[in-house]
């Protein structure tokens, strides 16, 4: 019952998609298929091609695998540059990530076959071990990327839509101001307790606190708990300023825990990179040592 007006576009060189397709499923799992095919091919070659026993690395297949592996490692490292160099062109970081993930996993096959399963306490095995560490941390990263974003988004939701990290911080600041005003009629000891909550930096805490989302010595919770305890020993009266402070502290606790959940998720989303990236550089160093050692001393 209707027709869509034809659209004229000129000079547009962008690719247009109108659905969300994640990096794992990119182009119908194109890189997964390529990597799997290559892995099967390489394993078949390793099994069926007759090669001299021992010192597999110096055979033609060993050299080939080694060269492929080393170049692949360098190319995979370049994702860090690609991500930050916003040059013109029809590249897509999603495609790069997709290739990075699946070719990175292919490296397990390439590197291990290249070793010829000859492990020992030497720089060569060190390079292999570092490589495996990088890959495993990367696989953990995939799991994190695939599972945590939903939780991150759900934690930001509320009745109004979604609130941002900045709004969370502002909400805590505004609660702090209200607590400060409400706490004016309190006696010195209670006021000191409340003050500890006010002085607490919502971003404080160790890396461990962040990662676990646990803050055992949280001043807000302590203040709320102690105030409640103290009140139990005081005579009940209407219009008690402690009531108001208590309610505000409870709200602050809720907002604080929401922000901490947010920070925890963000930390998990980033923490694995703190292993993945430095170990990559260690790997490149070990790899260089391995290459030099092989050519000069083998």
């Amino acid at each position: 019952m209707a027709s869509i007006a034809p659209r004229r576009r000129t000079g547009a060189s962008r690719e247009r998609t109108s659905t969300h397709e994640g990096f794992l499923a990119h182009r119908d799992f194109r890189w997964l298929k390529i990597s799997a095919a290559l892995a099967v091919l390489l394993i078949a070659l390793y099994i069926w091609v007759p090669l001299p026993a021992g010192h597999f690395g110096s055979s033609w297949l060993g050299y080939t695998l080694g060269t492929i592996g080393a170049l692949l490692i360098l190319w995979l490292t370049m994702l860090g540059v690609r991500k930050r160099a916003i040059t013109p062109g029809r590249w897509s970081l999603k495609a790069w990530t997709s290739a990075h993930v699946y070719l990175g996993m292919l490296l397990i096959v390439v590197g291990t076959l290249h070793s010829g399963f000859a492990f020992g306490w030497n720089v060569h095995t060190l390079a292999w071990a570092l490589m495996m560490l990088v890959i495993v941390s990367g696989m953990f990263g995939i799991w994190v990327y695939a599972s945590l974003p939903r939780a991150l988004s759900e934690n930001r939701y509320d009745a109004e839509g979604a609130i941002t990290e900045k709004q969370m911080v502002e909400a805590i600041r505004s609660l702090d101001r209200q607590i400060h005003d409400a706490a004016q009629p309190l006696d010195a000891e209670s006021a000191a307790l409340v003050n500890r909550s006010l002085e607490e930096d919502p971003f404080a805490g160790t890396f461990w606190n962040r990662l676990t989302g646990r803050y055992p010595r949280d001043a807000t919770r302590t203040a709320a708990a102690e105030l409640r305890q103290r009140r139990a020993f005081l005579p009940r009266r209407a219009d008690d300023p402690l009531d108001k402070v208590d309610a505000l502290l409870t709200r602050k606790e809720a907002m604080l825990s929401r922000m901490r959940r947010h920070l925890k998720l963000k930390t998990w989303l980033q923490a694995w990179l703190h292993v993945h990236v430095p170990v990559t550089f260690a790997l490149i160093a070990a790899l260089s040592a391995h290459v030099v050692a092989v050519f000069f001393y083998w």
Partner: peptide, 8 residues
Amino acid sequence: VRACPTGA
């Protein structure tokens, strides 16, 4: 869009 690593 080009710089989004995950296709979000």
